[in-house]
């Protein structure tokens, strides 16, 4: 009786509160405000796309979520990113655990110049994963990234011998090996040819069953194809956020419509 009550409560709580809640977030590089007072949710087990012209702050926003911007001396921020009851921007957050839980894949495929297998085990070793478990984790991650069949016989050859698309899927596998909750993808297909892009897109749709995905993309068709929610940003501001199907067919803001119809880019 009590247990089911609790379960119900939890479900209701999930229904109202998203996995992540960005509140009044501003990000600065020195004086320059690259993200301006953005508030939006990121829903669990959904794909949230960020679109907007180049330089509008999409990458900056994404890199703030897993605190990659801490790497840049001039970067600082205001506001909150609430996740599981904590503010990710809090000084007390352990960025190592944070980045393990919120993985990231970058625009250019950036495998380590090492064997394929080492790319996956690299980070596992930091977390003192048991040797007996590593083999299984590697295989699962490569299968999830739809790369296993292509590389299972050459795990010891250099990651740089892979094609661009394979390298990018390797980078996704590398992030998945840490069993993250959230994946942040920053234009993961922009450096890839159309066939490789399609493979990565299929992969993203597949992955959303198990992961929450935030993806920056330059490509509006791609956002329309794979995302559940879309955020349109312009000049650091969030112009419009909503369900992808609605935002693309019936944008509320004029600037969204202009962007979607190609009036500017």
């Amino acid at each position: 009786m009590q247990a089911s009550d609790l379960g119900k409560e939890k479900k209701e709580a999930n229904a109202v509160s998203p996995l992540m809640d960005i509140k009044n977030l501003s990000v600065f590089y020195g004086e320059k405000e690259a993200v301006k007072n953005v508030s939006m949710p990121i829903e669990g087990n959904k794909v949230t796309a960020f679109i907007g012209p180049s330089g509008c702050g999409k990458s900056t926003l994404l890199r703030t979520i897993n605190r990659m911007n801490d790497q840049i001396d001039s970067a600082h921020y205001k506001g909150e990113i609430m996740y599981d009851g904590v503010n990710l921007l809090d000084k007390k957050i352990d960025v190592v655990s944070l980045r393990k839980e919120i993985g990231m894949v970058f625009q250019e495929p950036n495998p380590f110049p090492k064997p394929i297998i080492t790319n996956l085990t690299h980070a596992l070793k930091f977390y003192r994963t048991k040797k007996s478990e590593i083999q299984g984790i590697v295989e699962t991650a490569l299968k999830q990234a739809a790369l296993w069949d292509e590389v299972k016989n050459r795990l010891n050859s250099s990651a740089q011998s892979l094609s661009g698309g394979q390298q990018q899927r390797l980078c996704i596998a590398r992030a998945l090996a840490l069993k993250p909750q959230v994946l942040l993808l920053d234009e993961p297909t922009s450096a890839l040819d159309p066939i490789s892009s399609a493979k990565v897109e299929d992969l993203i749709i597949e992955l959303k069953k198990h992961y929450t995905i935030a993806i920056v993309t330059h490509n509006m068709e791609q956002a329309a194809r794979i995302s559940d929610y879309t955020t349109f940003m312009y000049n650091g501001e969030l112009i419009e956020y909503g369900e992808t199907s609605r935002l693309f067919t019936n944008p509320k803001e004029q600037r969204t419509e202009e962007y979607l119809t190609g009036k500017f880019s």
Binding site: M68, F106, P111
Partner: peptide
């Protein structure tokens, strides 16, 4: 910077 980012992005110190 790419591969440094990759490493930091995986939570490496």
């Amino acid at each position: 910077q790419d591969i440094k980012d990759a490493s930091y992005g995986l939570g490496a110190t």
